[in-house]
Amino acid sequence: MGPKQRAAEAALTHVCSGMVVGLGTGSTADCFLSALSAALCQGRLRDVRGIATSRQSENRARELNIPLLSPADARPDVTIDGADEIAPNLDLIKGMGGALLREKIVAQNSRRLLIIADSSKLVAVLGTRSPLPVEVATFGHSLHVPFLSDLGATPRLRVNADGSPFLTDNGNYIYDCRFSRIDDPASLQQTLRTRAGIVDCGLFLGMASIAIVGDQQGVREIHAP
């Protein structure tokens, strides 16, 4: 069992029968979906319903026979999702899977956000490993490039394998913004939010309560201060 699978299995200890669970997007979150499906099939958990954070996780949950609700139907008891970077205080960069807006909507409505990851996602300072995804409206999207560059980023429009722009589930584009480091993520997030046409960014600040981190030896829990 690899580090991602170890973290996903450990996350099941935070899920009880009857819960509503926000279902994250990405390879690590997919490990959790598989673990949750197995627990339901084996009767270790009952009456757990999910709220998907993307079409990808919705389709995967249906394949695995995990019952689904819409976001308006219930408040998740916990959302379990991956991350691209995890700072020591559990501030996060997310969104390399292309679902940052829906992930944030579900996470902010959840009673708890639990992150699962392998140890490579731990960083001392945000922005040192992963680019910061910034979701933008398609109209006039290139006008954001100089704005993002002035903030210290090297922005790059995310594209598909055929070179066409990647479209989010919301019909928007994503600019992956490479910083050398993000020393003041709260200020950066606020600045991005003031710009018309920028929908949101992959900074998840003060949202996660626990990170379960797997490595070759096992798993450990990191709690927010």
Rank of each mutant, 00 (worst) to 15 (best):
D150T: 12
I210L: 15
M207R: 06
S17I: 07
G50E: 07
A153H: 04
R102S: 07
Y173W: 13
D200S: 15
R195N: 07
D183V: 13
V20I: 14
L188Q: 06
R44Q: 15
I182R: 09
M19Y: 11
D91Y: 03
I66K: 05
G140Q: 03
R102P: 02
R178F: 01
H223S: 13
G98T: 09
A161G: 01
V219A: 07
I222A: 08
L114D: 01
G18E: 10
V15P: 00
A35Y: 03
A29L: 10
L33A: 10
Y173D: 06
P88T: 02
G98P: 07
R49P: 04
L167F: 14
A7T: 06
C16D: 13
G24D: 10
K104H: 01
F204G: 07
A11M: 02
C177G: 09
C177S: 09
D91S: 06
L68D: 03
L68N: 05
F204Q: 07
R46W: 13
G18A: 08
V106Y: 00
D150R: 15
S180A: 14
N172Y: 00
R60H: 14
N59E: 15
A10C: 00
R44H: 14
G127F: 02
A196R: 13
F139S: 07
P67W: 01
P185Q: 11
R112Q: 13
D77P: 06
D91M: 04
A208W: 09
I115F: 02
L188I: 08
I86L: 05
D30T: 13
L45Y: 09
A74S: 14
G22T: 03
T191W: 05
I86F: 08
E85D: 01
A99K: 01
N59Q: 15
L203M: 04
P133Y: 08
H223N: 11
A161H: 12
P185R: 07
M1W: 08
A72L: 10
R102N: 07
N89H: 03
G127D: 01
N59F: 10
L114V: 10
S130R: 00
Q108E: 11
A61G: 06
D162M: 11
V219C: 15
H144N: 10
A38E: 14
Q216G: 15
T79Y: 06
M96D: 02
L101R: 01
H223R: 14
P88I: 05
D77Y: 03
V134I: 12
G50D: 10
D176H: 04
V106Q: 02
A7C: 09
R102C: 00
S149E: 14
A35L: 01
T128F: 02
G82P: 08
I174L: 09
R195I: 11
K104W: 00
A72S: 15
G2M: 14
G218C: 08
E63K: 12
S180C: 09
A52E: 09
A83R: 01
A83T: 05
C31T: 04
R220S: 13
I93M: 03
R62V: 12
E63M: 13
D169A: 02
N160I: 02
R112E: 13
S209D: 15
D183M: 10
V78I: 12
I174A: 09
M1G: 13
I222K: 11
L203E: 04
N65Q: 14
A35K: 07
A52V: 02
V136H: 03
V219T: 15
N170A: 10
L33P: 07
A99T: 02
Q5I: 06
A83P: 00
A107Q: 08
A7V: 08
L205M: 06
